[in-house]
């Protein structure tokens, strides 16, 4: 297929436009986050360029009629929630996927039960959990009902990622360890786990991202203390201000810097591996 230059260029151009479409909101966010404040609204044109809204986020501006974004507490909650969700769902996903390495009766049922967690719309999971909690007299909280709802969502992703990893895993190294007298649990710790760790990492990343930005499930399940997405949702029920855009720009920059660091680390390790390989050839 790669020897169709016209088709290839056309598709490349299209893909560039497509990525432009994905990033269009960020262009708008970027421009409007520099709107003058506090009277400038979240729309064009820019009345005057300023960094007012960035200062506003960090509480560096004099008090005005625009309430500060409730970022501090809600951000901590969202990060905590995302972290615990990540750990729990990765552990559950790895365990379940490990069980799937053997064929067992009812595996089809378990597979679909787990996958159901990502198929049922979030608003329904939130509603159902809220109903159950209300009837049992359990008070809803972000660390309780919302947490279990998040894991219901992220566990299937972790499971599928680990299933794919195990599908490509060479069982013979485990058998080799057993035949050396090493019991299965220790084999898992010393051999299997280090080898599947890249997969575990990506399933953790998946779970963290999904949970951090989770909104529909959290809405009904979180109770009184809000997570970050809930706080943002709360603001646009009233009136939105460019501080939201400034926050969006900051999170995007943060993501990109994390990604850059990751990319640099990766290329360093690849580079090192290559160097070793070249040395080998010289010898």
């Amino acid at each position: 297929m790669e020897n169709r230059p016209i088709l290839r260029s056309a598709l490349a151009l299209y893909t560039a436009l497509f990525i432009g479409f994905l990033y269009a909101p960020f262009v708008v966010l970027g421009i409007l986050s520099f709107q003058s404040g506090p009277e400038g609204g979240p729309q064009f044109p820019i009345t005057e360029w300023s960094t007012y809204w960035y200062e506003h986020i960090f509480g560096l501006t004099p008090p005005s009629r625009v309430a500060p974004l409730p970022i501090g507490e809600t951000l901590v909650r969202s990060l905590t929630l995302a972290f615990t969700t990540m750990v729990t769902s990765t552990v559950l996903g790895t365990m379940t996927a490990q069980a799937f390495r053997r064929r067992f009766k009812g595996s089809g049922f378990v597979f679909y039960l787990v996958v159901l967690g990502m198929i049922v719309p979030g608003v329904l999971v939130g509603l159902g959990i809220a109903l159950v909690a209300n009837n049992l007299g359990i008070s809803r909280a972000w660390w309780g009902t919302a947490f279990v709802a998040h894991v219901v969502y992220t566990f299937p992703f972790a499971f599928l990622v680990m299933l794919a990893i195990f599908n490509r895993f060479d069982k013979s190294v485990e058998e080799a360890a057993w035949s050396l007298g090493v019991p299965p649990m220790r084999t898992f710790r010393k051999v299997t786990f280090p080898l599947i760790f890249p997969g575990v990492l990506s399933s953790m990343l998946f779970a963290f991202t999904l949970s951090y930005d989770e909104f529909p499930r959290t809405l009904f399940a979180a109770g009184a203390d809000l997570t970050l997405p809930l706080a943002i949702y709360g603001t646009f029920a009233v009136e939105i201000h460019p501080n939201l855009f400034a926050f969006g720009v900051l999170t995007t920059l943060f993501s990109f810097s994390l990604l850059t660091v990751y990319g640099i680390l990766m290329s360093i390790s690849i580079h090192r591996a290559k160097k070793v390989a070249i040395q080998e050839e010289i010898e």
Binding site: V173, L180, G181, K190, V191
Partner: peptide
């Protein structure tokens, strides 16, 4: 003892640690 066709060495540790693996970790 079992030696398989693909050798099934532990790719994440050194040659020495591969050989030492059974001695160190066996039950």
């Amino acid at each position: 003892g079992f030696v398989s066709q693909g050798f099934a060495l532990f790719p994440h540790i050194s040659v020495f640690d591969n050989v030492a693996f059974g001695l160190r970790h066996r039950e």
